[in-house]
Design a binder for these strands. Structure first.
Lengths: 180, 180
DNA sequence: GGGGATATACTCAGTTCTGATTAATCAACG
DNA sequence: CGTTGATTAATCAGAACTGAGTATATCCCC
């Protein structure tokens, strides 16, 4: 849901009032690995939150610079934050996995090519896992729970792609080994 | 990416030409558990695929019924399908997990409430897992790979929520057991 | 001291997605 | 044989999202 983005922005503004640019910088630098929020989308959401009365904006003019707005959470926003947080913590919305669509049609491909592609995927997953490991040791402890979450899922993903590769090899054992 | 939705539609139309309604019925009945595609979105995507030349539509008029269009894949669409399938199989785009946002702010809550909510989540995950198990034995073998994919991830999710609960209990061991 | 890169700060037109609605057909019940 | 509820089939206004663009200030090197 887009609710989680509202939760994110309200949570950040709750800790500290900010203008849009600052907020975007923060998200890009600290939360890049777990949220996907374009800068223009953030501005859109801030405006929406504003229209809904959950944040208030104050325009700052200085010389003839482009104007900047400071956003701060309102009492209604505070309540909404609590609601969204409770909702987020208490529910589980299973994600949609893009990879599912591919495997549905995978059998329509030549075994060789299919295996080559799946091996490439395996490497892509591994290299993403490596990046997570780096984050795991570098990021502050406040992020470890999230990183560990991603590690659990990425490991599940490796198990799965290995199963797919094994299954494909079993069905049509042509040119078995492509890597090492 | 929205590319995966294009892949899905092209893949289905490749197997059999259809009109929009038929396609929507099929997706709702057979693929509900792994794709999230609103009917109106499907019509939008079909139109887009059409404008891009990947599918051709043929309008069927009959009496004064609302008109229906039959969609079939074009040669360009066939090529595009191959490209999208290769791309899908060879890459890994880590999903964004909604739950991450919640845990970032979870520590700002009373321990009691946090534990209550996380336990509710645990149950939600378990009940989703149960539904997957039912699908696992009921759906045709063509779907088993996908179901197993979801089972792997849902199990990862249970491990994670248990860790969160344990960590919260360790930090503030108030009213330890909420369920049984 | 001029000019090219970088940082600050947002806007906007265009694309994508969705909930609500429309509209005809059909089955079936009293 | 009228009306009501499901089925077939798709539209559309509006919400959500994004890439490309605008505009000023500031830093720094030659």
């Amino acid at each position: 849901m887009t609710n989680d983005r509202h939760l994110l922005l309200l949570g950040l503004l709750r800790a500290q009032e900010m203008h849009g640019y600052q907020l975007n910088e923060f998200i890009d630098q600290q939360m890049d690995f777990c949220v996907d929020l374009k800068r223009s989308t953030a501005y859109y959401l801030l405006d929406k939150l504003c229209r809904d009365g959950y944040v208030a904006e104050e325009v700052e003019r200085e010389g003839n610079r482009p104007e900047r707005r400071v956003y701060r959470i309102t009492p209604a926003g505070e309540v909404h934050f609590q609601d969204l947080l409770r909702q987020n913590l208490a529910t589980y919305v299973p994600p949609v996995y893009a990879e599912d669509i591919g495997v549905i049609f995978e059998h329509q491909m030549a075994a060789d090519e299919s295996l080559r592609l799946l091996n490439a995927r395996r490497e892509a997953i591994q290299s993403y896992r490596a990046r997570l490991e780096v984050l795991h040791v570098n990021l502050p402890p406040s992020h470890t729970a999230v990183i560990e979450h991603h590690l659990l899922h990425v490991d599940a993903e490796i198990v799965w792609v290995d199963r797919l590769i094994a299954a494909r090899l079993k069905r049509s054992p042509t040119t078995p080994a492509l890597h090492e």
